[in-house]
């Protein structure tokens, strides 16, 4: 079971993390990952301070370089890799 946390602190919200939450839940439904992934939110995980893109953690590990634009592809790759 992968635990994905998306930051919805103000800095990430402004950069589109709400959209990423929506995209991820859609992706989980489309791929049939419902029992493999739990999607949850988090308040500020300081990704903004370290300028590593949107705050997104998979099983506690911060995934750097995610933006609203590349979120779908990059996260799909990251998830597929970890599910394999």
């Amino acid at each position: 079971m992968l635990k994905i946390e998306v930051c919805i602190g103000s800095a990430c919200y402004v950069k589109g993390s709400n959209q990423v939450v929506a995209d991820l839940s859609q992706m989980i439904r489309d791929e049939g990952w419902e029992d493999k992934i739990s999607l949850t939110g988090s308040f500020c995980m300081k990704a903004c301070q370290n300028k590593t893109g949107l705050g997104i953690r998979i099983n506690g590990e911060l995934i750097p370089g995610i933006t609203m634009q590349n979120a779908k592809e990059a996260l799909k790759a990251a998830i597929t890799e970890r599910l394999a």
Partner: peptide
């Protein structure tokens, strides 16, 4: 900021 707060509440953070 109502939207992110409601999102947080809905996600049970």
């Amino acid at each position: 900021w109502v939207v992110p707060v409601i999102t947080a509440l809905k996600m049970d953070i």
